[in-house]
Structures are given as structure tokens and as C-alpha cells.
Design a protein around this nucleic acid. Structure first.
Lengths: 193, 193
DNA sequence: CCGAAAAGCTAACTTGATTAGCTTTGGCTG
DNA sequence: CAGCCAAAGCTAATCAAGTTAGCTTTTCGG
């Protein structure tokens, strides 16, 4: 039989697809192996077990999200940049729910590479808020607020946490305008709330 | 050997403790059985397998959260009610991370009892916003924004998603004041946007 | 052409969920 | 008070998934 020609990257990519389709919590070596027409133990030549696969998917997803956010923010500033960031964030989660879920884990203590990868998307937020004029010492709080709101919304949305029917896009707009106000209120020259 | 004297409620309660201690995703029949000094199959007399146990924990948690939120909101209104609700929400998630995680699932389609239980906490939010004077047609959006922000914050917090060090309480305060502003801006008599 | 590293496989073991069916407890009735 | 019987709990067995060990075979460099 000819070889399958796997690589770590190919395995991780297929795993990300499985996770997007079935949910990150249902990601299994068995499913990935079947999709790649390979026996389960063969995957161990490329990834470090299920935990290692999950970690690799998360690290890759962090890079992809950071890249998408960076592209959205490019050439924009102020409220427009915040809106673009919010839209790109939500779009990523909707397009790749499994990868998005993979990001909602903390790296193992001491795993500096994963920690750095996970931090990349946050850095885009930082850059945008810096450009917005948010004071250095308020920036941590504002970033946390923005991340929290966006994460909460897309998490609830992708899990079906909003009872259906009502226009979810409009709700997202309300949230984002609230965030723009919050950021603007903390931008340079404003007194704290 | 004397009987263990289990009941569905006792099993679910122990499962909730296991989930809080080890994480909802690590909740297992094996762990619960061991804690109750019982063989694993014995649990099937009281709960409907692992899926049934997860569902039962989630339903119970929804009731507990709704109760805590209701207690916090009682006797308050306006911004104070929103702040109290936010604090109670966060406190619940911190005290019971496993139960909180259990709530982040959607009930199986057709499971009306679970759907109703899951909706109970949302009803408390609705009541508070109604009292705040948020217009009927804006209420859905505002509730979604508030829920999103709170959920996102506590979810990131309980997962260790905030890099350490900086004062998380202060960040939460910034978020909550932003929410109060958002709600107030949408309250009766305010122009949208 | 050949030798070794790497890729992939089979076999075996472990843990956890689940089902079937047995035993025993303990409350309730006659 | 004796005995019945439903429910509680158990053991045994099956299945699925992850993991490890160790074998075979491809493939590529020399």
C-alpha cells in the first residue's frame, strides 16, 4: 500500500475541520484517522496524542484568528477599527466554531509557545486601542471588556444560546456600539467613569 | 452490605460537585460512582447515563443561578439592580465553575423542561431591564448585550483567559459600568444609537 | 544497490460508558 | 409477624476510544 504522506500540519488541519464540523469537544483521533484513511496509531507519528492534537489545533487557530483580526484592522482606526475588529471576530467564530472553541482553553503551565500563540489575537486588540487613544493604564480593563463582550456574544451565538427568531445581527450591532462608547469614554482626555 | 441510599437528587448534587472541582468536561460516571462508594452501573437506576447526568446537572444549575440572580435583584432597581445582577452572576460562576459550564449548552431539541429551566435566569434579566424602563422592542438586544458581556467576562475569567497580575475586579467594574451606560442609553426616553 | 530512518500497521492494554441479568434489601400487606 | 416484590445495587460482558510496543515496509541518501 502506498503511503498516506501525512505531515503534522496536514493532520492538524484535518483535525480543525473535524472540530469545526462536529464540535471541538467531539474531536477524536478516531475521526481524524478515518478521514485521512489511516489507522489511529499512525497519527502518533505526527502529533502527540489527543491532547497534543487539541493543543496544535488551538495554536493554529490562534494564528488564524490573529491574522484575520489584523487584516480587518488594517487601514482603519478609531470606531471604525473597533467595528471591523468586532465583525471579523464574529465572522471567524461563525465560520470556524471548532477552532474558536479550541481557543477557549488556557495553555498548560510552562507552555510558552502556546501562550505566545494565544496572545497574538489580544495584541491586535491592544494595537487598535492604542491607536484609539486609550490611556496605557486603562487599556487592560478596556481590552478585557471588549474581549469579554465579543467572546460572550459569539460564544452564546454559536452554542445556540439565543432563543431564535429575533435578529441577531441587530443585537450584535447594539453590543458593538456599546463597546465603541465604552472605548471612546476611556480614550485619552476623558475622565474615568 | 447496607444500601447507599442514593436518590437522583443526591447523584446530581455529587456530580455537580465533581464538575465544579474537576471541570464539567471531566465529569464522569466513574468519578461520581467512586465518590458515592457505589459501582458505576448503579447510577443508572437514578440518572439516564452520562448525557442524562449532564443534562440534570445543567437543569439544576440553571435553577440555582436563577435563584441567586433573583435574590440579588430583589429590592433593587435601575443601575443598582444591574450591578447587583452582574456581581451575583460572576460570583456564581466563580463559586461553581462546573455548574456554570454546564449551562453553556443548548438543550436537546424538544426537551421543553430543560429549555424552560435554562430560560429562568434570562427571565431575571428581563425583569430588571423592564424595571429599568428599556423599551419592549429594544429589550431583546439589550438583554443579549448584557448577557454576552457578563458571560464573556466570567467565562474568560474562570478559564484563566486573562493574563494574570492586573486587578480583575477593577476590569469587571469597568465592564459593568459600560453595561449600565448601555442600558441607560436604551432606557425609555432615550434616542437609539 | 543498500541501509537506515521514518511511516504506517497490527496487537494488546486501559479506561470509561453501557446493557443484561442476578441478588438482596426493605417497606408494605395480609 | 411472615412473606412478597419492587427497587437498589452488583457482577459480568461488550463497545469505543486512547495509548504503547514492536513489527514491516517504504523511501531516500549515499
Amino acid at each position: 500500500m502506498p503511503r498516506a504522506g501525512l505531515t503534522p500540519a496536514a493532520v492538524v488541519e484535518e483535525a480543525a475541520r473535524v472540530g469545526d464540523a462536529a464540535g471541538f469537544d467531539r474531536l477524536s483521533l478516531a475521526a481524524v484517522a478515518k478521514r485521512l484513511n489511516v489507522a489511529v496509531p499512525s497519527l502518533y507519528k505526527h502529533v502527540d496524542g489527543l491532547d497534543g492534537l487539541r493543543r496544535a489545533v488551538a495554536v493554529a487557530a490562534a494564528g488564524q484568528l490573529a491574522e484575520a483580526l489584523g487584516r480587518a484592522a488594517m487601514g482603519r482606526s478609531g470606531p471604525d477599527a473597533v467595528r471591523a475588529l468586532a465583525d471579523a471576530y464574529r465572522a471567524f467564530a461563525r465560520a470556524h466554531p471548532g477552532r474558536y472553541a479550541a481557543l477557549q482553553t488556557s495553555p498548560a503551565p510552562g507552555d510558552a509557545e502556546a501562550a505566545a500563540a494565544f496572545y497574538a489575537p489580544v495584541e491586535v486588540f491592544q494595537a487598535v486601542l492604542r491607536g484609539f487613544g486609550v490611556a496605557e493604564d486603562a487599556r487592560v480593563d478596556v481590552i478585557r471588556a471588549v474581549r469579554s463582550a465579543l467572546h460572550g456574544f459569539v460564544d452564546l451565538e454559536t452554542r445556540g444560546g439565543f432563543g431564535l427568531a429575533d435578529d441577531v445581527d441587530r443585537s450584535f450591532g447594539v453590543l458593538v456600539e456599546g463597546l465603541v462608547d465604552l472605548v471612546a469614554g476611556r480614550a485619552a482626555g476623558s475622565a474615568p467613569g
